[in-house]
């Protein structure tokens, strides 16, 4: 399977339409039947999928319309967690941080229905299924039950492995494990690496790993140990500074983050092109995918859309330059 050179993708989340947020609200108050809520989520999912496709994104997703938040969604589906209330992450952004209070249990598929729906509705051959990774779920939960974070993370890896196997059977080709917390504790990075490797064990799909707002020097030492074929990382937020760690990325692909997801200013296509030319000093274009820094959900929807449009336009500028060198496409690699 071939993709255009510098394939474009998203990280995962996208602003929910206002009407959907109202549905979430009504549903949480018990004033909307579950069936109606599910239908609204599915409609929003198609709307966002189309929006991603209209921007020209090669590998889309549905913007996580059915997920309240990236850990809360999973901790509410896995047995053994309870919620005490929201915790602030920055500014006025909060998430419901769960506490593990008993043995965790895989009660139901986590994202299988989402994947089926997106697959059924997309015009693209490949979609990316983002799933929060085992270490991040452990790190972003309170632990009142397990003897250590390691034990909690490995239990979660087991649960996620079960889900990944289901997704593979269902035809998923590309799963992105979101691990924004995996570098939180420098001493625990080997635990995160082991948890991720346990989660992907025996599953034959392309695995990407997304890590953001972190010190990537800590990750670079483990590039070779991680059984994933791509690292989707954030660079626009840090103004494309301090990229030397990429010298250690010798064979896997880079998902290069070129869009700042916390700033409403829309990057120009020229800025995007400039950033891509810069990263090509570190990673050859055949190993580059282009994406925003992170999920776009905190932006205004129109701004998020325009950012994706300009990202794709910026990519097209560089694609034209690469075409002159005869570089037009790359194979879709499940593993590298």
């Amino acid at each position: 399977m071939e993709l255009p050179i510098l394939p474009t993708s998203v990280i995962g989340s996208y602003p929910k339409p206002r009407w959907l947020l109202r549905m979430y609200n009504l549903y949480s108050l018990g004033r909307l039947p579950e069936e109606d809520f599910r239908e609204a989520v599915k409609d929003a999912s198609v709307a966002v999928l189309r929006e991603h496709e209209r921007t020209g994104i090669d590998i889309p997703w549905d913007g996580e319309m059915g997920r309240s938040e990236m850990t809360e969604y999973f901790t509410s589906k896995i047995g053994g967690f309870r919620f005490y209330g929201p915790v602030r992450v920055w500014g006025n952004a909060y998430f419901n941080k769960a506490a593990a209070v008993s043995k965790l249990e895989y009660r139901e598929p986590l994202v299988l229905d989402e994947f089926r729906w997106v697959k059924e509705n997309t015009t693209r051959e490949i979609v990316k299924v983002p799933i929060t990774g085992p270490y991040t779920i452990a790190e972003w939960s309170f632990n009142e039950y397990y003897s250590s974070k390691e034990e909690l993370a490995f239990e979660l890896a087991k649960i996620l492995n079960r889900e990944f196997r289901l997704l593979e059977e269902e035809g998923a080709k590309f799963i992105q494990i979101d691990e924004p917390a995996m570098l939180n504790h420098p001493d625990e990075v080997p635990i995160a690496v082991e948890a991720i490797n346990r989660a992907v064990k025996g599953v034959n799909v392309k695995f990407g790993l997304h890590v953001c707002f972190s010190n990537y020097h800590l990750l670079a030492d483990h590039f070779d140990e991680l059984r994933v074929s791509q690292f989707a990382l954030e660079f626009a937020n840090r103004k494309f500074r301090d990229m030397d760690f990429l010298r250690k990325l010798t064979h896997q692909e880079l998902g290069f983050g070129v869009i700042d997801v916390h700033n409403p200013r829309v990057e120009s296509p020229e800025e995007v092109a400039r950033a891509i030319r810069k990263v090509m000093n570190y990673v050859e274009p055949e190993r580059l995918y282009i994406n925003p820094d992170c999920g776009l959900k905190l932006l205004d929807r129109r701004i998020a859309y325009q950012k994706l449009v300009n990202m794709v336009r910026g990519v097209e500028i560089v694609r034209k330059e690469l075409a002159r060198e005869g570089k037009k496409s790359i194979p879709f690699r499940r593993s590298v």
Partner: peptide
């Protein structure tokens, strides 16, 4: 005032 950075080992970020 620049981008977001992790405040120590927390899921909490500062500008």
């Amino acid at each position: 005032v620049d981008g977001l950075f992790k405040f120590y080992e927390n899921n909490f970020f500062y500008r």
